[in-house]
Nucleic acid binder design. Sequence first.
DNA 1: TATCTTGGCTGGTATGGACCAGGCGGACGT
DNA 2: ACGTCCGCCTGGTCCATACCAGCCAAGATA
Lengths: 240, 240
Amino acid sequence: MDQADVVVPRQRALKHVQVREHVRSLIEAQPPGSAAPSERELVARFGVARMTVRQALDALVGEGLLERIPGRGTFVAQPPKTAGRLTSFTEEIRRRGMLPESQTLLARVEQAGPGVARALDISPGDPVLHWRRLRRADQAVVCVEDAYLNEVLLPGFLQHGTPTSLYEALAARGLRPSEVEDSISADRASAEEAAILEIAAGDPVLRHARRAVSDGRIVEVSRTCYRHDRFTVYLQLADR
Amino acid sequence: MDQADVVVPRQRALKHVQVREHVRSLIEAQPPGSAAPSERELVARFGVARMTVRQALDALVGEGLLERIPGRGTFVAQPPKTAGRLTSFTEEIRRRGMLPESQTLLARVEQAGPGVARALDISPGDPVLHWRRLRRADQAVVCVEDAYLNEVLLPGFLQHGTPTSLYEALAARGLRPSEVEDSISADRASAEEAAILEIAAGDPVLRHARRAVSDGRIVEVSRTCYRHDRFTVYLQLADR
DNA sequence: TATCTTGGCTGGTATGGACCAGGCGGACGT
DNA sequence: ACGTCCGCCTGGTCCATACCAGCCAAGATA
């Protein structure tokens, strides 16, 4: 093996990706309904074939960012539409125009118990990161969350301070969840939960359990207990 | 205007549609993982350009029916995966292997109040079907549901008895919801709800509100109140 | 026999040309 | 002043060709 084989993965930018990202940056600040560059215009600007431009636009149309109207042009599609999907607490609170905060109550490596081990698809006793946070929105206490992370996938995850957004930290490691299994139920607050959430024991709470999968690997298992008066889950589902 | 202009809209079958449907029929009986015809094979078979074949296969890949593997071929994808989506109470209970039952407490045409009118996107005072049902799973009381239906879209809906499954009845009229907006929260049972659900007033309940859209028209708005000890919402979400 | 090379397959990217139908506005004729 | 028609622009469809990278098995080589 000579040096020539030790190439940096210098992926030469694909034409259609260049065009796609250029258009994406053009339209992301545009209001819905405004016109995107025409296909032939992009052909001239980038010096590429029209099929290449169409491939780029197809991707954006597929993402729901653009809308084609034959005979008229290509336009920025209506607002996010099916927004807020697969979001974390931080992202969800921000989306509602509030300021998310997070106070770590506990962050340590534990040995997985049988329940957590099964949920994370590891063996009981394997190391897991247990991270308990009290979460606020605009200063008001909203929920307490216990997250269990597969330590093997996240070496030294909590060494350099605790990130604000778990999902953003996972994304930075290429482990952003792409699929989740959630369960949502109502229950009574335990004495411990009530103390943390500043409510009375037995008050209604919303429980949310999540198993998050990234690239076929289970990266996060969490259980969250919400004050019933400060949080509602909103969902948009579509059959396709 | 002569007769030549009065053409039947004889849409000559588009090539890529022909190829797409042919491949669809080929693969719909195949087990996941089996190979689909290669692109060049389809080019030869249909006498079309490869771009056309790719356009056809792109559509099927987009539908999740096919999966491309560079250097290997195109294969029938794993089954839909994301099962049980956009289901009604009846379907959801059946999916859990229990027997759903429904007892109509109220079924009549009312004048829409301001809240329901806004949710149904009609004017206050317009006629709406109000249908309240007590719902059971394996005989056990689970929830009470208030559904409001757009009377204009469903003439004589409750005339010939009340259907068991609302969604199946809607499907029979081509109005099965394709998109829904849900909100889920925890709360305390009101005195009336508690009496119906055979629990104590103030006990925790899970509230579920839904706006269901079919073909761009809002067909159903409902509010459901679940006993916290007998129902949990399960969800599978995926980013795409 | 075990390893290496190679060529034939796959899908992925890209070019450049061609024609169609539909939206739309300006030029034209009434 | 008004309506019609035509030409330009748009995206939609389709063709023929070319080269790339990855997979894989068969044949060549050590």
